[in-house]
Design a protein around this nucleic acid. Structure first.
Lengths: 357, 357
DNA sequence: CCGTATTCGGTTAGCGCTAACATACGCGCC
DNA sequence: GGCGCGTATGTTAGCGCTAACCGAATACGG
């Protein structure tokens, strides 16, 4: 049993005693083939263990079915959930996802996108709206349906689904003000690199400034988010600025660290000190207090993006309804802005009538 | 600027005033091309925005660089970490990962593997050793380097990296016995489907039986692991069997739920009741007590598997050293068994001299 | 000045498959 | 009988690229 040599369609056709083309039609279930011939070809294919070669069929003009997906990282739980949403939508379709990581680095992302495009994908899903000029150009020129996810604060290349991270940050700040906090600090990890986190912080900062209570302190760190980092940053911050009455964190993980630190140090939460995270990470339900946070609706983002790609990739061949730009509409998957969901948890005081916001 | 038509190598060659072949050589950096010609071709390529077509080059016999990776799911944090390890190793190589999900279902996995093989991959990474006969046959026939990960309890198709889940379960049971617990229960989620969890439980069960203290109770649930599920199952279990003095969980998430339930109900942990999880999930460091658990070394598993694929895929062309089976050795990536790491945490009593084990 | 080595570049064939166009045949109809 | 029509199969060309081979130009010692 050393038949490691590749079995081609020609072998199947020969075994079934038909032409190459008939075998091809049987495998693709197109055209007119009699039931008897079909059965013979299928039997031959099974017998020989034929596995189609999509490389060849794609080159010959068949439909493509790979979709490139670029995330900055997958260790961040957020993206694995987005991916789960994407996968679930692709599953019943002929499309399959091809993941690549941009590592929070635009130049690296450009390389990765070039790589993806070289596979003639049926679509590309990118994280965020910030890409190099080269990346944008390649994607536009390629004519491949593109959907940018997560963020909607900017001009997309093609489709776009996500939330406004600036508004999400602003939302957090308004809720904090509504709780009556006034001496507020901002704490962020992975800060210059994680653009979305940076944007949330920007949104919060603006609202605070406009309300006349600019941040009392801001602390950033380049390191990746972890509970330990949250503890450390919080300790440092409260040491330097004991008057702070609320901390807005760039994500739940460091907020959790902060919460644990504060509880250990005996701070009254949320009375004396309020804390807010971001992302609605579900494993954090084990915290002693439910953390105030914002759900960016990542699963839905993944699902919607995938549906946009499915729509654009699987139906671009319809006859142009009117103008010569018929395909154009199908190619453009549209823009969809979701609303982030705030949840107050138990680490912010209830809303004070008449306070801020 | 509506040049959406594909730019081919022929276009680049024409623009540079050289033949197709010379342009090809420049793009691949092979053969002898003078510096001047190379510069001209590169300029033309950049000018036209040329993106290579790997579909064509693969078909023409160039090297493949896609590696199919099949996980049962990515919502399980375990696999996203394995994937991070794989990505990190592939990053500096020309290989890229192509993720597909088997959804804990062997028949679905077979479809997915067929799909992967149709892309002529440079390698395939599969989770676990249990696959349909059809899957195994396809992979063997294809001649593609295969590495099965996570589990090493069985006969692999090609390479294999992971831990013995049976031994890991046995390890947990021995440690529990060493702590002096004797009325032990087993609790598992996603149970018939998650084969690895099933195997851990099997390993634990055997040790307990051999030690003369078979499990007092066993509780399984088909649902996906969550803290809420852990709480529910634990409540149910302790209600029915209040004499239990230790619970072995199939994973950390439900163990965390159990721990929170028990603390809320005032159980003395680890004195009256011991708890053990599995997986060493890092975000659980926020629990009030450090959970006893086992680290399956998933990051290393991903890295090792990726290295095996890199070795097999990138160096199979060396001249056969002696026998005619020269390529065979390079193709077979080997077997690597890692040792799971137990950590006692604060939810099991310290080891009792002379007790069990 | 020739022969051999060495570089540089071009030509041909073909990877495995599919669009697009034949071809062959049966059937009913005026 | 000839025509149109629909179904079932075959033939041709070519997708974009690369291996393998092949000439032309340059270099250099004898």
């Amino acid at each position: 049993m050393r038949n490691t040599r590749k079995v081609t369609l020609a072998d199947v056709a020969a075994a079934a005693g038909v032409s190459l083309m008939t075998a091809s039609r049987v495998m693709r279930r197109t055209g007119h083939v009699s039931a008897r011939t079909r059965a013979r070809v299928e039997a031959a294919a099974a017998e020989l263990g034929y596995v189609a070669n999509r490389i060849a069929s794609t080159l010959a003009g068949g439909p493509t079915s790979l979709v490139g997906v670029v995330f900055p990282s997958l260790s961040n739980h957020v993206y694995s959930e987005v991916f789960a949403g994407i996968s679930a939508v692709f599953d019943p379709t002929p499309l399959s996802a091809f993941v690549a990581l941009g590592n929070y680095h635009a130049a690296h992302e450009e390389k990765v996108v070039r790589d993806i495009l070289s596979w003639q994908p049926a679509g590309v899903i990118l994280t965020g709206l910030d890409h190099t000029e080269g990346t944008r150009e390649m994607l536009v020129t390629s004519g491949v349906p593109v959907v940018e996810i997560m963020d909607v604060d900017g001009v997309p290349i093609g489709g776009n689904v996500g939330i406004s991270f600036i508004e999400a940050g602003a939302l957090v700040a308004r809720e904090v003000l509504a709780s009556g906090y006034r001496r507020i600090a901002l704490v962020g990890s992975r800060m210059p690199d994680d653009l979305l986190a940076t944007r949330r912080m920007e949104g919060a900062r603006r609202v605070l400034q406009r309300a006349g209570v600019p941040p009392v302190a801001e602390l950033h760190d380049e390191g990746r988010s972890s509970i330990a980092l949250g503890r450390r940053m919080t300790a440092m911050l409260l040491d330097a600025h004991p008057a702070i009455d609320c901390i807005i964190y760039s994500n739940d993980l460091i907020a959790a660290g902060g919460l644990l630190h504060c509880l250990a140090e005996g701070w009254d939460i949320p009375g004396r000190l309020g804390l807010v995270g971001f992302n609605a990470v579900d494993t954090l339900e084990i915290l002693p207090l439910r953390l105030a946070t914002v759900d960016p609706r990542r699963r839905e983002i993944g699902e919607t993006a995938a549906r946009m790609i499915v729509g654009a990739a699987l139906a671009p061949s319809g006859p142009p309804p009117a103008g010569k730009e018929g395909g154009e509409a199908a190619r453009n998957p549209g823009i969809r802005k979701l609303a982030p969901r705030f949840s107050r948890g138990e680490t912010l005081r209830p809303v004070v009538a008449g306070a801020g916001g």
